[in-house]
Nucleic acid binder design. Structure first.
Lengths: 205, 205
DNA sequence: GTCTATAGGCGGATAGAC
DNA sequence: GTCTATCCGCCTATAGAC
């Protein structure tokens, strides 16, 4: 286990700070201090604050994709596949809790490049959902795959995004092991209800 | 219809800018320029940037509460009440689209007062949910009221927060009249599935 | 590669004339 | 109440010594 290099220390500090305070809430000085390096070193290794931010984003985006691809390769019926994807989604967010926070911190950003990043990120996730649900959901209307994508992915990510906000009336930290397991059960239950409802819609037609 | 006063112009500009770029993304200079007033006037009328921000938040918070109270006074069975609340929730977000964006822009904020605001705001909404669902949901576990609160309110607010982000693959603006009506149907369908599932859980016990 | 020093601009906020 | 002028600190970014 060797010491982290200067670029690595900068990257780790940037990851942590951007993820907790957003792009605008963090200065290069903050990052340099947290990394224990000189402010000028940050520019030497990463050109600009914006470039550093995009490097941080990019690593999450790539990891997110890889996590999805791993599960997509699994065999099984659509329902067990779907549950596997959701578990993998929750696990990924749990292991990368700054990722959903980074996403929301970009929602209001002035920089249009940040919006493009979110569009790419949500777009590829949605494509996956449509392949997974294509056979059991109609192409349009209130039961189209895109509706379930927004609802279910929201149920997952909001768990992490609003954790601090709901903690006072949730009964302790919503991300504690026990509370998160309960949340996971809730989402699985929700998915099952949706699948049952969709099955009924199909037989009714 | 008289001309808006200077404080009103400042307030309107602040509302719009904070709602689209977040607290950190907006400067007092920006607000003054948009309002067509001198920068010093902003401080004369609102003391500080932070105080102005809280005034903007407060108006949304109060309006949100009033919208809830109006619906809470309605009569009817729990199910039709629940649908009425959801419709009123969607209508409020539609009429105040900067509100959900303000909420998420505060999530990552460095200012702990902003976190307290979100805790108050989500807390009172949750109390409402618990009164509305208390008779049909268990006190704890994956089907507790708090779980449904996070899921359903997320389904509503994410519609507005992610509208721009999902637009490219959604088929036009998700907030167009037709698309929003479809989204509304989806959420109502979702609620019905949850209520049916909860009813089955109760008879099974 | 890493440092000090500094440029040049924008941030919130204030003083004081009118 | 509204303006100009200004303070001072922090911002991103760079120049240049070592």
């Amino acid at each position: 286990m060797s010491e982290p290099t200067t670029p690595e220390r900068i990257f780790a500090a940037a990851d942590e700070l951007f993820g907790s305070m957003g792009y605008d809430g963090v200065s290069v000085r903050d990052i340099a201090e947290k990394a224990g390096v000189n402010k000028a070193s940050v520019f030497y290794h990463y050109d600009s604050k914006d470039a550093l931010f995009e490097r941080v984003l990019d690593r999450y985006y790539t990891a997110h994709h890889e996590a999805l691809e791993d599960v997509w390769g699994l065999v099984g019926d659509p329902m067990s596949r779907l549950h596997a994807v959701i578990d993998s989604y929750i696990d990924f967010m749990l292991a990368n809790q700054r990722y959903p926070r980074l996403i929301v911190s970009m929602i209001n950003a002035a920089n249009p490049q940040h919006l493009e990043f979110i569009q790419r990120s949500t777009g590829s996730l949605f494509n996956w959902t449509e392949r997974a649900l294509g056979d059991i959901t109609p192409d349009s209307g209130p039961l189209a795959a895109r509706q379930f994508y927004l609802t279910i992915s929201g149920a997952v990510t909001n768990t992490f995004i609003y954790a601090e906000a709901v903690a006072p009336w949730w009964g302790g930290n919503p991300l504690s092991e026990g509370n998160l397991a309960t949340r996971r059960e809730h989402i699985h239950w929700l998915v099952d209800m949706c699948l049952e409802g969709l099955a009924r819609e199909r037989t009714d037609v």
